[in-house]
């Protein structure tokens, strides 16, 4: 057996591929998955967004109707904002608020985990603790706020019971407040993990050097920790911003379906069977989100940092 297999081995050795070809082969499975399940469907969405439609079907004829309907009145209504611009303004506002709070909370939690918890075991244990809410679905985590925040909910019962307010506070639920609150609750963890990951890699001797050099805690934070955590911050921001920009379920449920979002426009169009118009809105949303990510990636070279 051994004597037979040796020449065979040698024959294979002669078929050795160039380094470049091996690299392509190694990238092939990922490339195929990426192409089949991402690029192809995306290309189809872009194609359909330029189709025409009627009450019940898509008509495969070139039409810019999905786009022109979407931007209807945008010039005519100036200086007032048209529907699509107003919707995006609202979505960007919600997105900014959620980003701000998730960053603040996420950074603090990550900082605590990375610098104040000394033992590795505790660090892992506490990080796992952060994942516990993820054991239930995010719909449940979102809906769980409703009995707390409602007109007759726990918070309002406490407020009126303590005579802090004469009548229940209405803006707690079905408002921008409740949308931001539940989005922050849902997505802070996506900030914690990448920032923690960046922080844990900071060389402790740098911090000691800063201390020895007479830097205050705040100076160390601003000049050492934050710049070195930047990759984590940017990656976490990309996670949060892309999710919130496309969200329509949380905005819908917590906003009482009264708050516009880019995702909700797509949903309404889909429900009316206007697939090309929905696709056009999806392309617009994708372009907008890509632009934000492009700007973020200007801040830090993610490729290098990973």
């Amino acid at each position: 057996m051994v004597s037979v297999s040796r020449p065979a081995g040698r024959r294979f050795a002669r078929l050795r591929l160039s380094g470049e070809a091996v690299a392509w082969l190694q990238a092939l499975p990922m490339g195929l998955v990426f192409g089949l399940f991402f690029l192809l469907p995306l290309a189809l969405v872009v194609m359909v967004s330029f189709w025409d439609y009627n009450e019940y079907e898509m008509i495969p004829a070139f039409s810019g109707r999905g786009y022109s309907d979407t931007f209807e009145g945008c010039l005519a209504q100036l200086p007032d904002l048209c529907t699509i611009l107003r919707t995006y303004a609202k979505t960007v506002k919600l997105c900014f608020l959620v980003w701000l709070f998730t960053l603040g909370i996420g950074f603090t939690v990550a900082y605590f985990l990375a610098f104040h918890v000394k033992s590795k075991t505790w660090q892992i244990g506490l990080t796992l603790l952060c994942t516990i809410p993820f054991w239930t679905s995010n719909v449940i985590r979102m809906i769980a706020w409703i009995p707390l925040l409602g007109r007759n909910g726990l918070v309002n019962q406490a407020l009126t019971g303590l005579r802090l307010t004469p009548q229940p506070v209405e803006w707690l639920l079905f408002s921008e407040f409740s949308v931001v609150l539940s989005l922050v609750h849902l997505f802070t963890f996506f900030m914690v993990v990448p920032i923690f990951n960046s922080m844990i890699r900071i060389d402790r001797s740098l911090i000691e050097a800063a201390y020895d050099g007479g830097a205050t805690a705040l100076q160390t934070l601003v000049n050492v920790v934050i710049p070195l955590s930047k990759p984590g911050i940017v990656i976490g921001s990309i996670f949060v911003i892309t999710i919130v920009m496309g969200d329509f379920i949380t905005v819908g449920v917590m906003g009482g379906q009264q708050i516009a979002s880019a995702g909700k426009i797509i949903e309404t169009r889909l429900n009316a069977l206007q697939f090309p118009a929905a696709a056009a809105n999806a392309v617009i949303l994708l372009g907008f989100t890509l632009m934000i990510i492009f700007l973020l990636s200007k801040l830090v070279d993610i490729r290098k940092e990973l």
């Binding site: 009450e55 529907t83 919707t87 169009r269």
Partner: peptide, 19 residues
């Protein structure tokens, strides 16, 4: 009902939600 002007109505509904 589904109206003949359903497409227009859906656009107006999105405008209403955004208002």
């Amino acid at each position: 009902a589904v109206m003949d002007e359903n497409d227009y109505m859906v656009r107006k509904w999105n405008e209403f939600i955004a208002a």
